[in-house]
């Protein structure tokens, strides 16, 4: 987090986790479902590397039976090892009541949306306007 527009230290539980992510144009990308932390070798405080976003990131946070059930469903929908969308901290423009990026949201984050749009919603009359 070298960018001077972002705070040097932040209480991630309160200010970062579960916040809405908006892209450059203000379009909803997803939630900060989880974080990727990097622990420096010199023993300093952990640094937030990336925001993780999507069902694959949310599942593990729902501990217990609910979390297991979540992962099972996800396995059915998306076999293999589902990967959450990673948004690098360097792409974050502003941490406010929402997290604003300075570029479009990552492709992966919109994959399900895109599939449902192309296969269902766009085929119903009137869906395009």
């Amino acid at each position: 987090m070298s960018d001077e527009r972002l705070p040097g230290s932040v209480r991630v539980g309160l200010r970062l986790l579960d916040r809405q992510i908006l892209d450059r144009d203000g379009t909803d990308v997803g939630k900060v479902d989880d974080l990727e932390l990097d622990c420096p070798d010199d023993g300093g405080p952990p640094v937030v590397d990336a925001l993780l976003c999507g069902a694959a990131a949310l599942g593990p946070r729902l501990a217990g039976g609910l979390g297991r059930w979540w992962r099972r469903i996800l396995q059915r929908v998306e076999p293999g090892e589902p990967e959450p969308a990673r948004i690098l901290m360097s792409d974050v423009a502003e941490l406010g009541t929402a997290v604003r990026l300075d570029k479009p949201g990552p492709e992966v984050a919109g994959a399900v949306e895109k599939w449902l749009r192309d296969h269902i919603i766009a085929k119903i009359p009137g869906g395009r306007s």
């Binding site: 909803d28 997803g30 949306e113 919603i121 119903i124 869906g127």
Partner: peptide, 17 residues
């Protein structure tokens, strides 16, 4: 809750879920 794009202010294709 999931942070999707939502609402009637955009065409349904832009808020498919």
């Amino acid at each position: 809750y999931f942070g999707w794009r939502w609402g009637k202010r955009v065409a349904p294709v832009h808020a498919a879920r």
